[in-house]
Design a protein around this nucleic acid. Sequence first.
DNA 1: ATGGTAGAGTGTCTA
Length: 258
Amino acid sequence: MRIATWNVNSLRSRIGRVEAFLQRHDVDVLAVQETKAREEQLPLMGLSSLGYDVAAAGVDQWNGVAVISRVGLEDVAVGFPGQPGWGEPAVTEARALAATCGGVRVWSLYVPNGRKPGDPHYTYKLQWLAALREAARAMTGDTALVGDWNVAPTDDDVFDVAQFKNSTHVTPPEREAFQGFLDDGWDDVVRPHTPGPGVYTYWDYFRQRFERNRGLRIDFVLGSPSLSSRVTGAFIDVDERAGKGASDHAPVVVDLAD
DNA sequence: ATGGTAGAGTGTCTA
């Protein structure tokens, strides 16, 4: 089984690339972030003709997440237990959707960006990660926490840390929040197959960052121990970031033994 | 410190 995660930066504007990606790599389950569509604008008919079902949630003008699957889409849930204020207008920027696909529990996550250290959105980001970690501790079975974490866990995951002074994604509290998941037994199942430095999943649209490989590694697949033991390979589809009409993130793909 | 690009939708806001 092949699963993937991709921040598509608008599902509607990227639908052609999404369909081509699914077919090119024979993907069974794709978690997407930043759908930027309202619920009534989904599902997209092209996907169903390819055999995929779509579950979307938390859709608004800027964010939103979805899971696209051709191996089942069961027990769909939005949010996670214990998160304060879930669903209220003030927190609509942050989303999580879970679905069981082919026996694997897949969580499509869009961690809040945080905007600036000290900003209320930054505080909320840390609270959101803490709430997710707490909920994740209760998860059992083959589970994958996938998506745009908006955290670059180490300096190797940033093209130039000096440029990120006073910026989000690299602050110690954010990195500690991410590390907490690893401490709890979640594995970054992609890194062993894509060693760095210089390996990224996101390149800003500005200043030809992709062409110069000045990016960040902020999209992750964290596997539960039982899922992690099934991983046979992983890659970042860097080529998908090239050319006109690309998302600013590349897809991350993971293969699982049956 | 600012700006650069892209996507949502018409005013800017967000990333």
